[in-house]
Amino acid sequence: MIVLALPRGGVPVGYEVAQALSVPMDVLLVRKLGMPGQEELAMGAIAGGDVVLNEDVVRHIPQDDVAAVIRRESSELRRRDAAYRSGRPVAEIEGRIVIVVDDGLATGASMRAAVQALRPRNPKKIVVAVPIAPRSTRREFAMIVDEIACLVTPEPFSAVGRAYKDFTQVSDDQVRSLLR
């Protein structure tokens, strides 16, 4: 069993899950693809070279703009890989139970890309674990992963950050520290 945390916000949550289960933790590098001019709104995500796009959103955006966002976020993934791994290889997951952790799900675009990137690596089982998600997103994930663990599904759902007393940005230094 291994915990794979989505940086940056998923790393502190993943760390606690890994400690509670006494299993190793690594990062699974994923980047949300924010809509040009509205970066908080996900038009998709990228993980391990896999791009997952929300076709309902991207059909209204010029393809050159979509490609530019993909290039920018791919560059950030390479930077984070160098910053977080420090030369360590990607964790082996074939035949293992993989618990993929984030700080919460809203649209689920980043987690969908993460799951898509993991499938070809042949894990024994994929479990998505998050503290908060809307009911609709939780239902979607129940159909695409082996198991989903989600503590709260508030209705109406407004934002992941509402579930936290402190939802400040997690720094690269904090990520590196928790990975050590």
Rank of each mutant, 00 (worst) to 15 (best):
F157H: 01
M143H: 10
E92Y: 07
F167R: 13
V3T: 04
V23F: 11
F141R: 02
E140W: 06
P120S: 04
R85Q: 04
E40F: 04
V23T: 12
P24A: 11
D65H: 11
A159N: 12
P62A: 05
P12V: 00
M25I: 15
C150W: 02
A45G: 14
L33D: 02
D50K: 15
D64I: 12
F167P: 11
M43H: 05
A42H: 06
Y15C: 07
R121C: 03
L41V: 15
M43T: 06
E16R: 15
E94P: 03
V100W: 04
D173M: 05
P62I: 07
A91I: 03
E16Y: 01
V13W: 06
A47C: 15
V58Q: 08
K32V: 12
E76A: 03
A117T: 02
L179A: 10
R180Q: 14
D166W: 01
Y15P: 02
G9Q: 06
E55C: 08
A47I: 12
V98M: 08
E147I: 05
C150T: 07
R112A: 14
G10Q: 08
L118K: 12
A47R: 10
M1L: 04
A117N: 02
I97K: 13
I126G: 01
Q169W: 10
R31K: 15
I61Y: 01
H60V: 00
E94M: 11
P120T: 01
T107P: 09
R72G: 01
R176D: 00
V51F: 09
V152S: 06
V30S: 08
L151H: 03
S110P: 02
A68M: 10
R138S: 07
M1A: 13
V130P: 10
M1Y: 00
D50F: 12
R72Q: 14
R119N: 00
K124W: 04
K32C: 09
R96T: 03
V127M: 08
D172L: 03
R72S: 12
M35H: 00
T168K: 13
L4V: 09
A91L: 07
P120D: 02
S86I: 01
R139T: 12
R180A: 12
V100N: 01
I2Y: 00
N54G: 00
V52N: 04
R176S: 02
D146F: 07
G14M: 06
